[in-house]
Design a protein around this nucleic acid. Structure first.
Lengths: 193, 193
DNA sequence: ATTATCTATAGATCTATAGATAATGC
DNA sequence: ATTATCTATAGATCTATAGATAATGC
């Protein structure tokens, strides 16, 4: 499963063959099917959990009892950090969703309903802040999508950022750190009354 | 080429076969190779121009002699509108860049140098605005990447937005219009001193 | 004479399964 | 007895080319 994950993340679903997965593991290709029945099934098993945490990393509500704005800052940063650890996941998932709707439907059947209640919860918090004059009137879904866009695109667009990093890992890390701070700044700024 | 473009955009490079392209056009599969020599070559021919306009749509400098902030607002909006017309292009390109570096290198060999001078030019404008106290100190590359992120992700993430649109084209258009306005607002807000 | 189209086919893959054989756990 | 592994192979693709035949433009 680890080998499959690495290959899927590297080459996408279509370009990864069960033969190659077997070769990496050092076993026979038929074994892959013996254990996982099909390539599609293997993909689902490998990414099911990752997908859930990918979807919920942004939505998760921190338990800490901090002021709203600090909580939100943390939330954006946590989302970014989670993406950094799974930096190749977004492009893989979105590509599958766009090009292989069959697979996408099967995978996202589980997810999809839960977000709504969480968005509603955030909306309540935002409304309170607005009443108190701390932020401007804000739509929770729109806010989440903006955060999502800025953070996710940092990793989908990493080949562009890499052009600026000139193949230096240090520079790339510095650029990512900049993006993290800038994404937080952009969002927090957008809330100003 | 139109048929090929539609299929590539819909199913990605790997999942589109020359057989299918021929079937859509209503000709023999060998003809595709007669005219384009190879699938890769066909892909390059189809998207070469699109890729250039994709890369430069954000960078293009409007000729109009407007105040900086108005010019920037227009620029963000134009970029968004261009993406709306080519809404499936970003996920296709980024997927190829991520999973098929060979193809990516060949395609982006041409582009890649030009942006730098344009970024430098924007930086000059930003510095002037900063000196005049109109905006906060701003890095041109970071600003462009933020605009790029917000606009592009709207279309890469369209399956998510579609969940909210409940399969209504009108609702989807309204959501996109919201995103367009919100992206502009976010960016302009981020420049405040 | 050149260009366009077709048939046939080579040569690579790839997924998935059937069926034999080896290894392991009770 | 169950689980793991292998060999062999069916059956579907897919890209690309060779070579024959038809259509077109001068």
């Amino acid at each position: 499963m680890e080998a499959a994950e690495a290959l899927f993340l590297d080459k996408g679903y279509a370009r990864t063959s069960t033969i190659e997965i077997a070769r990496v593991v050092g076993c026979n290709q038929t074994l892959v099917h013996y254990y996982f029945r099909s390539k599609e099934n293997l993909f689902k098993q490998v990414f099911e959990n990752k997908i859930k945490s990918f979807c919920f990393s942004l939505l998760e509500i921190s338990e800490e009892d901090l002021p709203f704005k600090e909580k939100l800052e943390k939330r954006i940063g946590n989302h970014f950090d989670m993406l950094k650890v799974n930096s190749k996941l977004p492009i893989l998932l979105f590509n599958e969703v766009h090009t292989n709707q069959d697979l996408a439907r099967k995978i996202f059947a589980d997810v999809g309903h839960l977000p709504l209640s969480i968005i509603a919860h955030l909306q309540l918090e935002l409304d309170v802040e607005y009443e108190n004059g701390c932020i401007c009137k804000t739509d929770a879904a729109a806010l989440l999508f903006s955060i999502f866009s800025l953070n996710v695109m940092t990793f989908i667009g990493s080949p562009l950022l890499r052009l600026f990093a000139e193949n230096s890992k240090e520079k790339m890390d510095a650029i990512l750190e900049q993006r993290r701070a800038e994404n937080i700044r952009l969002i927090m700024n957008s809330l100003n009354p």
